[in-house]
Design a protein around this nucleic acid. Structure first.
Length: 489
RNA sequence: CGGGGCGUAGCGUAGCCCGGUAUCGCGCCUGCUUUGGGAGCAGGAGGUCCCCGGUUCAAAUCCGGGCGCCCCGACCA
């Protein structure tokens, strides 16, 4: 009954709410090491489902998995000028091993471009050896100043795809293709709508020719960069001598791409879908989709209701839902805990559907089916419960995406906005603001300085305004490109 | 790295100013009664009061020095 059973609400303190949801839903916990977290089974289960699906999508687009070392020779990082400038300040460096000082310090990878392209250089001689399409699932370390569970930790889990191609255009096509894969995943599986587009020079990856990004809007109207895909051009191939002989007999440097998403997406999931009761997990990513809570009074009822709950579970499991998925069902028949307490707990954890089964229901051959997303309850016949549950899960998955997209659009501003109004919005409730930009880095920097808002992306065509902005948000000169502005995580 | 806050049982805390028996809630264990939206009663277990040093007859409390974590900034997926 005490206050510690209640969550801080999103409107009271979004940041506190986020931390509480992550901790209380047991997604993760703080570790003994500053800035590092322990991903607990309920959080890791979501990440595993993300991995499974993404891995399938990578394989379907022709990629293979491999694994490269955690340690990178310091000299490797220094070979690409922008890359070292971007990452050196945030690396962890191993100087000793086996009690001895190392000849050359080893960097704990902040990302693996350097070591991977050094290996590709060894493997590629001819255009016939290309393309190389490799992905690795790995951990990386970036020595961040300020950390937050899932969103920014010293060590995090991710995948990084690294490809090498014969031509610029082929690399460009790959970078765009993988951005599309990310978007499909984020919208189709996470029910998290994203705006895609290109990063500005100031915001692009250190060492890239161009960076593309998926930007989601969190419930505090801040942007979360959820996935990036880079066309690296020939920057790394030149640094690592990744050359090949062309069909015509000449020597060319290969064209590279890299692309990644991380456990940060779990944080994005929380901040996109969570509500004041806790987490809401989209069915496709939920380690448990349906929880069955049996309710009883007498011992006689107890036996009967528990048995029925397990029978329902069996019948649901037997039913194929989508290929090759099966319903993931859990029966919560713990004793000594009242049904109401169980409801709160499963709601906090975000399980999409709850089935309540009591003696009164059994007498009517039914169960009560409750949606986590809307709270809606209805009775369903045990005869058709498999279909009903599967249909409802599909509906919840769709509804969550639609709702999130609607929320994003409600907090997006298009059409002429004055700079004063823009500042007001950024200092207030925040928004995605689509506005003109003259292309001058000084305007970009000044806006960042004054409002903490950055250009999230130069949005892809489908996200651009029907009526393109004519002047720069900051200086009023003619706009050369439409930009999406927001404060970001 | 600057600013702020905090380290007391698994978690959250009171006590600290003004030194003297370590407080309460949640959780946990046992038993009984309960179970359709956070159960009740009874009993019980659980503590290097962050660490080191100092003052004192006596330190969670006062003094000095460390360490750690969280939040807010600057930097970043």
């Amino acid at each position: 009954m005490a206050d510690d059973k209640k969550l801080t609400t999103r409107s009271e303190d979004f940041s506190a709410w986020y931390n509480e949801v992550v901790l209380k839903a047991e997604l993760a916990d703080y570790s003994p090491v500053r800035g590092c977290m322990v991903i607990r089974p309920r959080g890791y289960g979501i990440w595993e489902r993300m991995q499974q699906q993404l891995d399938t999508m990578f394989k379907d687009t022709g990629h293979e998995n491999a694994y490269f070392p955690l340690f990178i020779p310091e000299s490797f990082l220094k070979k690409e000028a922008q890359h070292v400038e971007g990452f050196a300040p945030e690396t962890a460096v191993v100087t000793h091993g086996g009690g001895k000082k190392l000849e050359e310090p080893l960097i704990v990878r902040p990302t693996s471009e350097t070591i991977i392209y050094a290996m590709y250089a060894k493997w590629v001689q001819s255009y016939r050896d290309l393309p190389i399409l490799i992905n690795q699932w790995a951990n990386v370390v970036r020595w961040e100043m300020r950390t937050r569970l899932f969103l920014r930790t010293l060590e995090f889990l991710w995948q990084e795809g690294h490809t090498a191609h014969v031509t610029h255009d082929e690399a460009e096509e790959e970078a765009r293709k993988m951005l599309g894969v990310y978007r499909d995943f984020m919208e189709g599986w996470m029910a998290m709508p994203v705006v895609t587009g290109m990063k500005t020079e100031a915001e692009k990856f250190a060492g890239a020719l161009r960076t593309y990004s998926c930007e989601g809007m969190m419930q505090d109207n801040k942007a979360l960069q959820a996935g990036t895909s880079h066309n690296l051009g020939q920057n790394f191939s030149k640094a690592f001598d990744l050359k090949f002989q062309t069909e015509a007999g000449g020597i060319e440097y290969a064209w590279n791409t890299s692309w990644g998403v991380s456990t940060r997406m779990v944080g994005g999931l929380v901040m996109t879908h969570g509500d004041d009761k806790g987490l809401r997990v989209p069915p496709l990513l939920a380690p448990i989709e349906i929880v069955i809570v049996p309710i009883w009074k007498s011992d006689e009822d107890k036996g009967r209701v528990k048995a029925a709950a397990h029978l329902i579970k069996e019948s649901l499991l037997a039913r194929e839902r989508r290929v090759p998925g099966r319903l993931r069902v859990h029966v919560d028949d713990r004793e000594g805990r009242k049904p109401g307490a169980k409801y709160y707990e499963w709601e906090l954890r975000g399980i999409p559907v709850r089935l309540e089964v009591g003696p009164r229901d059994l007498d009517q051959n039914q169960a009560i089916m409750v949606r986590r997303d809307t709270g809606e309850k209805r009775a369903v016949s045990l005869a058709s419960i498999g279909e009903d549950a599967a249909d409802l899960l599909h509906l919840i998955q769709e509804t969550m995406l639609i709702d999130a997209r609607e929320r994003r659009e409600q907090h997006s501003i298009r059409g002429g906005i004055t700079y004063d109004r823009f500042r007001e919005v950024m200092d207030g409730e925040g928004a995605f603001v689509y506005a003109g930009w003259c292309g001058d880095v000084k305007c970009e920097a000044a806006i960042k300085e004054e409002t903490k808002a950055t250009i999230r992306v130069l949005p892809d065509e489908e996200f651009r305004s029907a009526d393109p902005p004519k002047t720069c948000l900051k200086c009023g000169r003619a706009s050369t490109v439409e930009a999406l502005w927001a404060r970001a995580y």
